[in-house]
Simulated assay, not measured.
Amino acid sequence: MITEILLGNLVEMTPEEFLSSSVWVARIKTYFKLMDVNGDGFLSLSDYEAIADRLVELQGNSSNYEEIMTLFRDLFQNMIAGGASVDANTMIREEELVANAAKAVSVLQSAPAVGTRKNEVFFDIIDTNKSGEISREEYRKYLAIYSGGDQPERADKAFDSIDADGNGSITRTEFIEGHMGYWFTHPSNQSHTPLPYGPLVEA
């Protein structure tokens, strides 16, 4: 059902069309700054492996450790590094991420199930009490794992932008559509802009 919704909303676009939008570029730069925890101006494979470790710790269950670690390694290679071979020495700068992400999303638009599956896994990890919904506190903990520290104001703004019906919790559909819309949809095709990583930086 979720994949069908996304298929209906996605309009396939070229990398150049994504890059022409200052809002879309700002989204990617916002993500970069959130993930660049040590502020060195680069994203590395070890950064993503460390996040995977923290997510496993958050859920308190290592039974799907390999799935989560593989997911983050694939995310780094296919989205962050643009599909290039990666190793412990691979370092991606902000401008490289913007270009790589534009190429990746233009390709993956034709296969939304890939992004949907990734976000399904994330949802299940963040929903630590297995209620079927993500609470404000659960979302704060999730973003803290990415950013390396608690940022309640940023997390609350992100939460409110995804909680489409404003009922105080994020459903699976809201979570997946919010994250997919952030990456895969040109701002000109959206009536609402989800901000899953908080307020946008300047492009």
Rank of each mutant, 00 (worst) to 15 (best):
Q109G: 04
F123T: 05
S135Q: 09
A113P: 01
L143Y: 04
D124P: 05
A104V: 06
Y142D: 04
Q109P: 05
V105Q: 02
I126P: 00
R117F: 12
K130R: 15
K103P: 00
N100A: 08
N129Q: 14
A102M: 03
V114G: 05
L108W: 12
T128K: 15
R136S: 05
A111V: 13
K141W: 03
R117W: 12
I126T: 13
R140V: 05
G149S: 15
K130W: 09
I125H: 03
K130F: 12
N129D: 15
K103S: 10
A102W: 00
T128Y: 12
L97N: 00
E153G: 11
I145N: 04
R117N: 13
K103Y: 07
A113T: 12
E137Q: 13
N100Y: 05
S106F: 04
A144W: 03
D124T: 12
S110Q: 11
K118L: 14
K130C: 11
V107L: 14
E137M: 09
S110M: 08
A144G: 09
I126A: 10
S106V: 06
Y146W: 14
A99C: 06
E133W: 10
S147I: 07
K141N: 13
V114P: 03
V105T: 03
L108C: 09
Q151E: 15
T128G: 08
L97W: 00
A111G: 02
S147W: 03
D150Y: 10
V114L: 12
I125E: 03
I126D: 03
Y146C: 02
E120V: 08
G149C: 10
S131L: 13
R136H: 08
L97M: 14
L97H: 00
N119L: 14
A104L: 05
A101D: 00
S110H: 12
P152E: 10
Y139N: 02
A102L: 04
S110C: 07
Q109N: 11
A99K: 09
L97K: 00
P112N: 09
K130P: 03
I145L: 10
S131N: 12
F122Q: 10
G148C: 07
R136G: 00
E153K: 15
S147N: 12
V98S: 00
